[in-house]
Write a protein that binds this DNA or RNA. Structure first.
Length: 424
RNA sequence: GUGGGCGUAGCUCAGUUGGUUAGAGCGCCAGGUUGUGGUCCUGGAGGUCGCGGGUUCGACCCCCGUCGCUCACCCCA
């Protein structure tokens, strides 16, 4: 153990029974995404580095210090994907599917940073992207999908924060005024932002230090700088959400970590997660991204959600309900040592049953223990006697009166009997 | 990148002022009826006490380093 390998820093193996939660979560999302008209997009886990840092911004933390960058043997510079959107947009540009192109994905994402609760070097995100339409109705659809997904997971204490960044011009005007304000009060900013406010003034907005918060609080607010078109768009989105009964809270200081966001931006916060890592999902519109990546102009919007954080949030809310059934139906106990068991197991699986057996010719007692622990409803016993007479003993593992509930059936009647007993 | 806490069996942890073969519970394996599970009883396997160095007659225990885990800051999912 001491000299053996272990998973790299900030990564985790997900094994049973935890992994069943993942299966359920992904299956739930896949079904929902399908219902909303999204199709699955599988894109590479690494891309030319420009795909990522052009969109998310050369100055962003993710691009400057958190990206996993490497050279391959052909001297190309690649990066492991730090987020989901850029790859899908790159694929959109490359293949030019008909618009609106609506895709969902589930993928690992990599960020080189010190791990802590709810933050890892490899985490997993699922999300959607809708590219090629500016209609605020699609914004509503994307946000609604996320909302319904959280509900399906059983989450009840989720808050939706929303804001609009406007398009380039609105944002530009705002940033100018904001810069002026920050310059005036720069001495009041926290140490960190006294140095960086010029490069990335928007970052100061979500600084959590009191000094910066005070400065920002008397500062200009983004929504006040929206042009009429952007303001209308934003109003439509909010109205659409309201019509669906989805409550959103305007957070004029909400600016997300990636530079590509325009107009609608939003974040879902799990209130049950008290710590700083309580954002379980977020996203927004990225109307300039396609062009930044060399494509034609195409507006788009998407959201991504962290699987690990969703599971943490569920745990924090005390939700234990399984999203998928992973209990097996039958355990075949074989002490005959003949091929009968192998054939029976195969037949049952072909019939659609989940069937497990033991190996290494263990004793009957030992196999019964395994059968019990397997969670199976019934054990099928095949010993020398059954093999000889072409019969099988069906034993109930869950009934209360387990001493007696045992039934000997002819092999040819097995499936028929199981159908009735398992009702499937 | 910075700071705090922690590293003893698969898991959760004991381990007395440094003293000889390092313990418990759970789990695992086997047996208690040579065809039968949940309880019970008995036995067993399993640890270079994270790693390296130092102090000492002697280190799981003290010191230094290192690696890892964890939590927090920053930022994000």
């Amino acid at each position: 153990m001491n000299s053996s390998f272990q998973a790299p820093i900030g990564t985790h193996d997900v094994l049973a029974p935890q992994s069943a939660l993942w299966e359920g979560l992904v299956a739930t999302f896949a079904q929902l995404a399908f219902q909303y008209g999204f199709t699955l997009a599988l894109t590479p886990m690494f891309e030319e580095i420009g795909v990522f840092n052009r969109g998310i911004g050369e100055n962003s933390d993710v691009a400057t210090k958190e990206m996993y960058v490497f050279q391959d043997r052909g001297d190309r510079t690649y990066a492991l994907r730090p987020e989901g959107t850029a790859s899908v947009v790159r694929a959109f540009i490359q293949h030019q599917p008909t618009t609106p192109y609506k895709a969902w994905y589930v993928t690992p994402a990599f960020r080189y940073e010190r791990p802590q609760a709810g933050r890892y070097r490899q985490h997993h995100q699922l999300g959607v992207e809708a590219i090629g339409t500016d209609d605020p109705a699609i914004d509503v659809e994307v946000i609604a999908l996320a909302w319904r997904f959280y509900q399906a997971l059983g989450l009840r204490r989720v808050r939706l924060l929303i804001n609009s960044m406007g398009h380039d011009e609105c944002r530009g005007r705002y940033v100018n005024v904001l810069k002026g304000h920050l310059e005036e009060w720069r001495e009041q900013l926290c140490d960190e932002h006294q140095k960086t406010w010029i490069q990335n003034p928007l970052r100061v907005l979500d600084c959590k230090r009191e000094s910066c918060i005070n400065v920002v609080n008397d500062g200009p607010l983004l929504p006040d700088f929206l042009c009429s078109e952007c303001a209308n768009h934003f109003a439509s989105v909010r109205k659409g959400l309201a019509v669906l009964g989805i409550e959103s809270t305007l957070d004029p200081r909400l600016v997300r970590g990636f530079d590509y966001y325009t107009r609608t931006t939003f974040e879902f916060v799990a209130e049950a997660l008290g710590n700083a890592q309580n954002a379980i999902g977020g996203g927004g519109r990225y109307d300039g991204l396609s062009e930044q990546l060399g494509g034609k102009p195409a507006g788009g919007i998407g959201f991504g959600s962290g699987i690990e954080r969703l599971l943490l949030a569920r745990e924090a809310e005390g939700i234990t309900q399984n999203l998928i059934n992973r209990t097996i139906d039958l355990f075949v106990v074989d002490t005959s040592g003949l091929d009968v068991a192998t054939v029976v197991v195969d037949e049952l699986r072909n019939q659609g049953y989940a069937v497990v057996r033991s190996f290494d010719a263990r004793s009957m007692k030992s196999q019964m223990k395994l059968a019990d622990r397997s969670g199976a409803a019934l054990a099928l016993l095949i010993g020398p006697q059954e093999a000889e007479s072409d019969q099988i003993t069906i034993r109930d593992l869950r009934g209360e009166d387990f001493e007696r509930d045992q039934q000997l059936v002819a092999r040819e009647d097995l499936i028929f009997t199981l159908r009735q007993r398992l009702k499937k």
